[in-house]
Amino acid sequence: MRPVVILRPEPGAGKTAARAAERGLEARVFPLFAPRALEWHAPAPERFDALLLTSANAARLAGEGLARYRKLPAYAVGRATAKALEEAGFADVVVGDGDGTAVARRIAADGHGHVLHLAGRTVAPIDAGALRIDRIAVYEMLRTGEEGWAERLEAGSVLLVHSPRAGELLARHVGPERRSSFHLIAISPAALAACGAGWASAQAPDKPDDERMLALAVRLCE
């Protein structure tokens, strides 16, 4: 059986590994980054019509300031982000199965105009359309100190890439001469593009979801 290599940070990596094990997959965890909270000033919630989070890490690491926005309509990209918001005390979170741009369109369609986006220091581009989006970085992703991880990847492995930044790092460390030995599953088209070309196979699920990524992995490992 092909091993599944999970490159996302903890605690998400461990959760993905547990889901993979439930499906009978051999999972290996190689986190490329670790999240770290940033100091930030929480602006008055009255300034905004809605709250947007595109990463569960923003909910986990925003700290006490996040609670100020519990009365705002909350929107999340992906189920994991929505769950993290709910665990932080938010009710009736609207879950978007698409990317940030798709959720921005949903927010606008719901009649909101001014949105607070709590995010990481580096985020995927969002086409705001008619929305005014104020983005505040509440966390950053730091490279892990482990060296030589790319050389330890076993040929035939299925690599799970959960962000464009992880895709960029993977492409930098696994050159074109080695890529034909690995299968790639990326969470989104943007993450897939960041990985470059030349892989044995490369695909993304129809929606950015961990469960859908694992479903594709099961097919590759059968």
Rank of each mutant, 00 (worst) to 15 (best):
R152G: 01
T144S: 11
Y139P: 14
E154P: 10
E146K: 07
G145H: 15
V161P: 04
G148P: 04
I136P: 04
L159N: 04
E140H: 12
V158G: 04
G156M: 07
P164Q: 03
T144R: 15
M141C: 00
V138Q: 13
E140Q: 15
V161N: 04
G148A: 05
M141T: 04
V161L: 10
E154N: 04
L153G: 13
V158A: 06
S163W: 03
E140D: 10
E154C: 03
V161D: 08
P164I: 07
E147W: 00
M141Q: 15
L142T: 11
P164S: 04
E151Q: 06
V138G: 11
H162I: 01
L142R: 15
S163F: 06
L153P: 13
A137V: 06
H162M: 07
P164D: 06
A150G: 07
I136W: 05
L159Y: 04
E146V: 08
E151L: 02
Y139I: 12
A137L: 09
E147L: 09
L160D: 13
V138W: 14
R152P: 02
E154L: 08
L160F: 09
E147I: 01
E151R: 09
A137G: 12
W149K: 01
S157L: 01
L153V: 14
G148L: 02
R143H: 11
L159I: 11
V158R: 04
A137C: 07
S163T: 11
S157Q: 05
E154M: 03
W149V: 01
S163M: 03
V138I: 14
S157M: 01
A137N: 10
R152I: 01
R165F: 02
G145Y: 12
R143S: 14
L160E: 09
A137W: 07
V138R: 13
E151D: 14
E154I: 08
H162W: 08
Y139G: 11
L153F: 14
L153M: 12
R152F: 00
E154T: 11
H162L: 03
G156Y: 08
E154Q: 11
L159C: 03
V138D: 13
G156C: 06
P164M: 02
G145T: 14
R152E: 13
A150I: 02
R165Q: 11
G148Y: 00
R143N: 06
S163L: 05
Y139H: 12
L159S: 03
P164L: 02
E140T: 13
A137Q: 08
W149G: 00
L142S: 09
A150P: 09
L142Y: 06
R152A: 10
S163E: 03
L160T: 08
